[in-house]
């Protein structure tokens, strides 16, 4: 199991590096020492953001995958009009920085639509919108990589366009783009930290708030780094597992 070993080794190395430097005089680990009441409370406070980071990222990636697929399909159409719709969407959305999009959705969109949007949904909309352009390109590349013969074979058993996509093309395309989709999920987890600027109580916001009261940015942000690291290692392992499972028919 070389893969597991290397993942484990990286994590252990990182932990050891932090542990060693943690012995020096510059560090004040008491601020998050779980054996003291204050340290324990601080740790709980920091971890309180975990559920929002996860919920925010998962909701956003689900929506962005769905939207991305919807945007990718016209990009594969023979007609120029549909293709230009796809290009327009991708170029426009891809050009807006995520932070700017978050601010625009949270402060700007309510004025435009007259509806007030909660911090959570503003975050979800901004992250999903921004990511959907990238998902669309990933799906387009994945679908285009499928051999033309697969469409002809689907045609030869009279499958409709929808059935061809659902039963023949997408299952094969998704297998090929799974590493890229995993990348996007990692990216999404990291970008969710930006939603802290509009007051979302996720991991980064919690850390910022604790720094303001405890004045120990080094230790608190180090914990924050570790929180993201652990989350993302779990996601990577999950994506790898899924890849192996889906490749069952390629084994021989």
């Amino acid at each position: 199991m070389p893969r597991k070993f290397s993942t484990f080794r990286i994590t252990a190395l990182a932990a050891a590096a932090f542990g060693l430097s943690g012995c020096s005089a510059n560090w004040g680990w008491y601020v998050v020492n779980p054996s003291t009441q204050n340290g324990l409370n601080n740790l709980k406070f920091l971890l309180g953001g975990l559920q929002y980071t996860i919920l925010l990222s998962l909701t956003a990636i689900t929506i962005s995958i769905a939207v991305g697929l919807m945007v990718a399909l016209p990009g594969l159409a023979p007609g120029r009009f549909l293709r230009s719709l796809n290009r327009g969407y991708v170029e426009l959305v891809r050009a807006v920085p995520i932070l700017v999009l978050i601010l625009w959705v949270y402060y700007g969109l309510p004025q435009l639509s007259g509806l007030s949007i909660s911090v959570f949904w503003a975050g979800v909309i901004a992250l999903a919108l921004s990511d959907s352009a990238f998902e669309a390109e990933i799906f387009r590349a994945g679908i285009q990589s499928i051999d033309k013969g697969q469409y002809e074979a689907a045609h030869s058993i009279s499958l409709s366009y929808t059935d061809t996509m659902i039963c023949v093309i997408l299952p094969q395309a998704v297998r090929r783009i799974l590493p890229a989709l995993g990348n996007q999920l990692v990216y999404m987890l990291k970008m969710s930290s930006l939603v802290s600027v509009i007051g979302m109580q996720e991991l980064t916001r919690k850390a910022n708030e604790l720094v303001v009261t405890e004045y120990r940015p080094l230790e608190i942000y180090t914990i924050l780094v570790l929180e993201y690291l652990v989350l993302i290692l779990i996601v990577s392992a999950g994506v790898r597992w899924l890849e192996r499972r889906l490749r069952a028919d390629e084994r021989n």
Binding site: Q150, E152, A153, I157, L159, S160, C167, R175
Partner: peptide, 18 residues
């Protein structure tokens, strides 16, 4: 042009079912 992600049986059943 068989469908590589489906078993032989699933390849054959796809058209009749769908």
């Amino acid at each position: 042009n068989l469908f590589p992600h489906l078993t032989v049986l699933e390849n054959l059943m796809l058209g009749p079912v769908r």
